[in-house]
Every structure is written in C-alpha cells, then in structure tokens.
Simulated assay, not measured.
Amino acid sequence: MIQFFAALQVLGAQALDYFGDQTDVINRARDERGSVTIEQVLWAVAVITISVIVIGAITTFVRSKSQEIKAP
C-alpha cells in the first residue's frame, strides 16, 4: 500500500512539474511587450481625431457667422 501512495505522489509531482512548464510556455507566448506602444498610438489617433472634429466645427461656425457680417 505504501508503494501505491509513493507512486501516486511521484505521479502528482511529475504532473505538477509538467503543467508548471506548460504555464511557462503559455506565459511566454502571451508576452505583452509593445502593448504600451500600441496603447500610445491608439490614444494619439483618438486625440488627433477629436482635434480634427473640434477644429472642423469651429471653422464651420466661424465661416457661417462671417457670412452674416454686413459690409459697410
């Protein structure tokens, strides 16, 4: 009976070691290097897009108001 428990313990230790190695492989595959750069690019694109929309709205408003100015 002791041999059976010893065999189970060895089997469990080998399984834990195997699955530990597999999680290391998965973690290396999920390396997030470059995610900060991508995030910064997306924020820059968002800021530029919002700026273009705001500038376009202001330009349209100013042009419409300038049409209302009467020349003397």
Rank of each mutant, 00 (worst) to 15 (best):
G56Y: 02
K70D: 11
V36P: 00
R30M: 11
R63L: 15
L16E: 09
P72E: 05
K70S: 06
A13I: 14
T60Q: 01
A15V: 15
M1I: 05
G56M: 04
A44P: 00
V36T: 12
N27L: 12
E39P: 01
I48M: 06
Y18I: 08
I38T: 07
F61G: 01
D24Y: 02
V47M: 01
R63P: 00
A44F: 07
V41W: 10
R33F: 14
W43Q: 04
S35G: 02
M1A: 12
E39Y: 06
S66E: 06
I69H: 01
V45W: 05
F4G: 01
Q40S: 06
N27E: 11
M1D: 06
L8M: 12
F61I: 03
V52I: 15
D17H: 08
I48K: 04
Q22V: 14
N27P: 00
I38S: 09
R30E: 10
S66R: 13
G34V: 09
G20M: 06
I53L: 14
V45C: 03
A71W: 06
I50M: 11
I53P: 01
E68H: 02
S51C: 04
L42Q: 13
R63W: 10
S51F: 14
I2V: 07
I55V: 15
K65G: 00
R63V: 11
N27S: 11
R28F: 10
A13G: 09
D17S: 12
Q67R: 09
S64P: 00
A13T: 14
G20Q: 10
I38M: 09
T59Q: 00
V54A: 13
G12P: 01
M1H: 02
T23F: 10
A6H: 12
V54G: 00
R63C: 06
V52H: 01
R30F: 10
G12S: 15
T60L: 04
S66A: 07
T59K: 01
F19L: 11
D31P: 01
V36D: 04
A46D: 07
V45F: 08
M1S: 08
D24N: 08
S51H: 02
K70A: 09
D31G: 03
N27F: 07
E68V: 02
R33V: 12
A71T: 09
Q9K: 05
S51I: 04
Q40R: 05
D31F: 09
A13R: 10
G20N: 14
F5V: 06
R28A: 15
I55G: 01
S66M: 11
F4A: 11
R28N: 15
Q9T: 13
V52A: 11
F61T: 05
P72H: 03
F61M: 03
Q22M: 09
I26K: 05
V47R: 03
V10D: 12
D24I: 11
T23S: 08
N27K: 10
Q9F: 13
I26A: 10
T49G: 15
R28M: 10
V62C: 02
A6Q: 13
I53G: 05
R28Y: 09
G12C: 07
S35R: 09
Q14K: 15
N27I: 13
R33D: 07
M1C: 02
Q22H: 02
S66D: 08
T37P: 01
V10E: 14
T49C: 10
A29L: 15
F4T: 07
S64Q: 05
Q40V: 06
I50F: 14
Q22A: 13
V62L: 12
V52F: 03
V45M: 07
G56D: 05
A15N: 13
F19G: 00
T37G: 03
Q40M: 05
